[in-house]
Design a protein around this nucleic acid. Sequence first.
DNA 1: TTGCTTATTGGTCGCATACTCAATAGCATT
DNA 2: AATGCTATTGAGTATGCGACCAATAAGCAA
Lengths: 213, 213
Amino acid sequence: MTSRGPSKRVRKAPAERRHEIVAAAAHVGLTEGLECVTLRRVADELGVRPGLVGHYFPAADTLVAEAFTAATMADLDSLLPERPDGPGGDDTPRAVLRRFFTLTSSTEFDNVSRLWLNARHLSRYRPELRDHVVAQELLWCGRVEQTITAGTESGDFSCADAWASALRILVAVDGASAYINTSADRRGAPIVHLARAVAETELGLGAGELAPI
Amino acid sequence: MTSRGPSKRVRKAPAERRHEIVAAAAHVGLTEGLECVTLRRVADELGVRPGLVGHYFPAADTLVAEAFTAATMADLDSLLPERPDGPGGDDTPRAVLRRFFTLTSSTEFDNVSRLWLNARHLSRYRPELRDHVVAQELLWCGRVEQTITAGTESGDFSCADAWASALRILVAVDGASAYINTSADRRGAPIVHLARAVAETELGLGAGELAPI
DNA sequence: TTGCTTATTGGTCGCATACTCAATAGCATT
DNA sequence: AATGCTATTGAGTATGCGACCAATAAGCAA
């Protein structure tokens, strides 16, 4: 059980404490939504007083923005490894994309879909968050582009403009996940595979070549 | 100029007042976001006291939900007329879709894109709004399906499953509009035409056949 | 004109948020 | 063991929200 009374105060190095706060904020944002990333909610998560969180983040917007980046960065590397054939698995670009589409359409990814939807809307009001979201969008798109380029060079894919194709593939992914809070039960419907189909078209592959094995 | 002091109170028929409130809430939701649809904000818009709005909407969620429906219903009929060849223009299904893609990718549609993004996220927390969004999603999809079916019967389109195609087309539209608050400046990029390209593929048309004249 | 129904007001209450700042106490250094 | 730096607390301010309710007055009907 979590400690009830005012626990003995623990003094930590600023860098460590700050990192701890961002991690807690990322967890709250991922599971409950970025609107719930408040000084009080994050402080509760850590068992500290709200004032402490406010001390490290004089503007709450900064905490929300960093929470988003922390949460999405974690998924990025697992979904799209920086070097498709680097250490940690000699996956072919085709295998990487296959895994990408399998994971992004699984229910494990639902909270991540919610987070992106959340962040893209909240960016309307919070400029600092907006900057972080734009940066992540570019990062993800670049990572997909890397994978496509690698596949084109190895002869697996046939693609004239890797960046444009990456853009279109991500549009399809984001479109499919837009309904996560409303008509998510329609997932079994044709929309789940739209992103995969778009990718196959973009990369000159036959239908089903990026489907899970 | 707007009246400053407490203007003489005006007494209206409940039905009229209620409709007026929903219209004002829809305007606020469309231009400033559904989070700004509060009892106070809507009351200001109308020049009445917040208590009055609260009287007509004992639960604020209801007002937000109805505001969303009112705002989206207005666009639906202008974008996708119920009878493609009915009164008000003997447009062919092809012309209807052409206009649909032209309008949805114009900047005039930006606030509508923001509204949908807004509503789909907010549905996470507000069940009543969620119901309205789901209903609108079905309505829009059905309207696209109608147009596709009409085009298939007239021989303009070639489509096996009109409903599935309508779903995929809307996924592409929503995907393209997901970046409205973040990377909207990328609109000139290939993503704008993705939805149109998806539609052309789905309906067995050649590339560019749904492009603006 | 008088009276009555009820739409509308004005105020309050409880709760949650961000933000500020002096006071406190943990921990490393001396 | 004593000292000093500063991480941390606790309390307070200001703003905004939804919800509630008695008092008021607008406009219709008699």
